[in-house]
Protein backbone atom coordinates (compact mmCIF):
# COMPACT_ATOMS: atom_id res chain seq x y z
CA UNK A 1 0.00 0.00 0.00
CA UNK A 2 2.76 2.38 1.03
CA UNK A 3 4.68 1.25 -2.03
CA UNK A 4 1.81 2.21 -4.32
CA UNK A 5 1.57 5.58 -2.57
CA UNK A 6 5.29 6.12 -3.11
CA UNK A 7 4.98 5.30 -6.80
CA UNK A 8 2.07 7.71 -7.18
CA UNK A 9 3.97 10.39 -5.27
CA UNK A 10 6.90 9.92 -7.65
CA UNK A 11 4.71 10.19 -10.72
CA UNK A 12 3.05 13.33 -9.36
CA UNK A 13 6.43 14.84 -8.51
CA UNK A 14 7.73 14.01 -11.99
CA UNK A 15 4.70 15.58 -13.64
CA UNK A 16 4.71 18.70 -11.48
CA UNK A 17 8.44 19.38 -11.43
CA UNK A 18 8.98 18.52 -15.10
CA UNK A 19 12.71 17.98 -14.75
CA UNK A 20 14.55 18.21 -18.05
CA UNK A 21 16.75 15.22 -18.78
CA UNK A 22 20.30 16.18 -19.78
CA UNK A 23 21.02 15.36 -23.40
CA UNK A 24 23.82 12.96 -22.46
CA UNK A 25 21.46 10.86 -20.32
CA UNK A 26 18.59 10.70 -22.79
CA UNK A 27 19.65 7.47 -24.56
CA UNK A 28 19.62 5.68 -21.19
CA UNK A 29 16.08 6.71 -20.27
CA UNK A 30 14.19 3.90 -22.07
CA UNK A 31 16.58 1.25 -20.74
CA UNK A 32 16.30 2.73 -17.23
CA UNK A 33 12.51 2.51 -17.49
CA UNK A 34 12.64 -1.15 -18.50
CA UNK A 35 15.11 -1.90 -15.69
CA UNK A 36 12.87 -0.09 -13.20
CA UNK A 37 9.82 -2.03 -14.39
CA UNK A 38 11.75 -5.27 -13.95
CA UNK A 39 12.66 -4.30 -10.38
CA UNK A 40 9.07 -3.27 -9.58
CA UNK A 41 7.45 -6.42 -10.96
CA UNK A 42 10.10 -8.56 -9.28
CA UNK A 43 9.33 -6.78 -6.01
CA UNK A 44 5.57 -7.25 -6.38
CA UNK A 45 6.02 -10.91 -7.13
CA UNK A 46 8.33 -11.39 -4.15
CA UNK A 47 5.79 -9.63 -1.97
CA UNK A 48 3.07 -12.02 -3.13
CA UNK A 49 5.42 -14.97 -2.60
CA UNK A 50 5.97 -13.65 0.91
CA UNK A 51 9.71 -13.29 0.49
CA UNK A 52 9.95 -9.54 -0.25
CA UNK A 53 13.06 -7.91 1.09
CA UNK A 54 13.60 -4.15 1.11
CA UNK A 55 17.37 -4.30 0.79
CA UNK A 56 17.16 -6.79 -2.03
CA UNK A 57 14.64 -4.61 -3.86
CA UNK A 58 16.73 -1.44 -3.61
CA UNK A 59 19.90 -3.20 -4.66
CA UNK A 60 18.22 -4.97 -7.57
CA UNK A 61 16.81 -1.67 -8.87
CA UNK A 62 20.08 0.22 -8.61
CA UNK A 63 22.19 -2.57 -10.06
CA UNK A 64 19.67 -3.18 -12.86
CA UNK A 65 19.75 0.46 -13.91
CA UNK A 66 23.52 0.74 -13.61
CA UNK A 67 24.29 -2.47 -15.49
CA UNK A 68 21.76 -1.66 -18.20
CA UNK A 69 23.21 1.84 -18.59
CA UNK A 70 26.75 0.44 -18.65
CA UNK A 71 25.85 -2.05 -21.37
CA UNK A 72 24.20 0.66 -23.47
CA UNK A 73 27.17 2.96 -22.95
CA UNK A 74 29.66 0.26 -23.92
CA UNK A 75 27.52 -0.64 -26.92
CA UNK A 76 27.48 2.98 -28.03
CA UNK A 77 31.25 3.20 -27.71
CA UNK A 78 31.71 -0.03 -29.68
CA UNK A 79 29.16 0.90 -32.31
CA UNK A 80 26.72 -1.87 -31.45
CA UNK A 81 24.49 0.21 -29.17
CA UNK A 82 21.17 -0.84 -30.69
CA UNK A 83 22.01 -4.54 -30.61
CA UNK A 84 23.11 -4.46 -26.99
CA UNK A 85 20.05 -2.37 -26.04
CA UNK A 86 17.92 -5.02 -27.71
CA UNK A 87 19.70 -7.66 -25.66
CA UNK A 88 19.02 -5.79 -22.43
CA UNK A 89 15.37 -5.28 -23.35
CA UNK A 90 14.94 -8.96 -24.25
CA UNK A 91 16.44 -10.24 -21.00
CA UNK A 92 14.57 -7.78 -18.80
CA UNK A 93 11.42 -8.24 -20.88
CA UNK A 94 11.50 -12.01 -20.36
CA UNK A 95 11.88 -11.46 -16.64
CA UNK A 96 9.04 -8.96 -16.56
CA UNK A 97 6.77 -11.38 -18.41
CA UNK A 98 7.69 -14.27 -16.14
CA UNK A 99 7.10 -12.23 -12.99
CA UNK A 100 3.83 -10.78 -14.28
CA UNK A 101 2.68 -14.32 -15.08
CA UNK A 102 3.54 -15.36 -11.50
CA UNK A 103 1.68 -12.31 -10.14
CA UNK A 104 -1.29 -13.22 -12.30
CA UNK A 105 -1.29 -16.78 -10.92
CA UNK A 106 -1.19 -15.38 -7.39
CA UNK A 107 -4.03 -12.93 -7.90
CA UNK A 108 -6.40 -14.88 -10.12
CA UNK A 109 -5.28 -18.46 -9.44
CA UNK A 110 -5.05 -18.91 -13.19
Amino acid sequence: MIAVLALIAGVVAGVLLEPTVPLALQPYLPIAVVAALDAVFGGVRAKLDGIFDDKQFVISFISNVLVAALIVYLGDQLGVGTQLSTGVVVVLGVRIFGNVAAIRRHLFRA
Binding site: A13, G14, V33, A36, F57, F61
Partner: peptide, 10 residues
Protein backbone atom coordinates in the same frame (compact mmCIF):
# COMPACT_ATOMS: atom_id res chain seq x y z
CA UNK B 1 13.50 4.29 -4.52
CA UNK B 2 9.85 3.73 -5.40
CA UNK B 3 9.35 7.49 -5.57
CA UNK B 4 12.35 7.71 -7.88
CA UNK B 5 10.90 4.96 -10.08
CA UNK B 6 7.57 6.78 -10.26
CA UNK B 7 9.33 10.01 -11.20
CA UNK B 8 11.41 8.11 -13.76
CA UNK B 9 8.28 6.75 -15.43
CA UNK B 10 6.68 10.19 -15.50
Amino acid sequence: VLTIIGALLA
